[in-house]
Design a protein around this nucleic acid. Structure first.
Lengths: 238, 238
DNA sequence: TTTAAAATGTGTATAATGAACACTTGCCGC
DNA sequence: GCGGCAAGTGTTCATTATACACATTTTAAA
């Protein structure tokens, strides 16, 4: 792979090769989880003095031989032990001063994982789940990144079957509704919600019941196979 | 600005500084225009041997001291002479082999401009408008980039007042409907279309009439000031 | 000046979708 | 067996989207 770029614009020739390569690329993964009727996000204590005491989302520099999806997938699996996660690119943040140590352009992804999944492990002491609603300030421009990812998640949630990545394989409609309410931060009418979900035809009735609830158990459902989207079977993945 | 990045992950320390900076960042602008009832896109003949005869969208490397928006804005004004254009980030493409001369990650923007605007000039002999529907193949991964931008445009068009950037300041409802039909590639019912637009309350009635049409002239409208969004007054711009 | 062609401008009826709302049933725990 | 709690289920009403037709205005040509 030649290190000489061949883009012949008027401007480029005036500027040295090194200048152009003096920008680093990173990916940042906003990893959402769901627990105790709250939407959570996985954060790590910032190791930069400038941001002492602040948390940031998980990210890393992109290696020369990996594409963006691979990089964010690597961040995810290194940090959580999980594979086959749902990942979606949201936005690229390229402000000049966004990283105190140098020019770093970052592409933000959001990811949805099941906190209770047997493979899920926190591979770092300083990793913690935080309730999305409680987060006021983050290191770098990560609050902006979080907000953008949260907005994207909210836009997607009623149109596409993505939130099931936050739940265990089997779930009741009440659990599903609680999850929607946590994500959208609104109350939903139970009957209308069930109707809406039924119409979409995303679920299979497992003919099983909840068995660990202190009241009448509900039916258990699972997402239909053809709607399951993860990093390995993504329908659209560049 | 220190060249020593301070991101202390396990992985980074094993890899030399130069490796990480051996990635270039570019922006690509998918510039849409509208003429003769067709949606157009501004393309340039590729100057790479690998893509001889193929066209590509307009792009350039990002300079070390400019953010992504500035870079795409610069590409736009250098190529078209226009300022105050509408620009929106769509997606970042980071595949390993997407550029034959080296590793280049690119962030794609789409832009909407009025082909007939007095400031619009093509500052390059090899720039041409192409009908979006006729484009089968482009250099690099630019067909994919075009498709993604076109999809984004189509998603936005009914919800947000963006397409007015493709029209002159004054326009009739017929012209507006023709434009919507060109973008969405469908026919719309005239009465329902007018109702839908009226409800949105985007337009002011100028109390003027068309005067260059070979039939009954229609009323002229303009986009209300508070809905005009360009690069200088953008509501949300990172 | 009459007439044909073409597009403007407008309203209503019907269908589809979304929102509000209450009661009976089943299981658990005491 | 009784109280608590959530499951399960339909209907009405309001809003929104769709389908559809006719009279009017202007230009251009006979």
């Amino acid at each position: 792979m030649s290190k000489e770029l061949n883009l012949k614009t008027a401007a480029i020739e005036k500027i040295s090769h090194l200048d152009y390569f003096n920008i680093a690329i990173s990916v940042d993964c906003v990893i959402f989880g769901y627990d105790n009727k709250e939407l959570k996000v996985l954060l790590i204590k910032s190791d930069l003095e400038e941001f002492a005491g602040l948390y940031s989302v998980l990210g890393d520099l992109v290696r020369p031989d990996e594409d963006l999806e691979s990089a964010s997938y690597r961040v995810l699996s290194e940090r959580t032990g999980m594979e086959d996660v749902y990942l979606e690119q949201v936005h690229t943040f390229g402000g000049i001063g966004r990283h105190p140590s140098g020019r770093v352009i970052t592409t933000a992804y959001y990811s949805l994982i099941d906190i209770k999944h047997h493979k899920f492990k926190l591979n770092h002491n300083e990793l913690h789940w935080h309730s999305v609603n409680d987060i006021k300030k983050l290191a770098f421009d990560h609050k902006k990144i979080l907000d953008k990812c949260l907005n994207r998640l909210r836009e997607q949630v009623m149109e596409h079957p993505v939130v099931f990545n936050l739940l265990p394989e089997k779930f009741s409609l009440r659990e599903l509704q609680d999850l929607y309410q946590a994500i959208l931060d609104i109350d939903l009418d139970r009957r209308n919600f069930r109707k809406k979900i039924a119409i979409k035809d995303w679920l299979v009735d497992l003919n099983e019941m909840e068995n660990d609830v202190p009241h009448r158990p509900g039916k258990l459902y699972a997402l239909k196979k053809q709607h399951q989207r993860t990093s390995t079977n993504a329908v659209v993945m560049q």
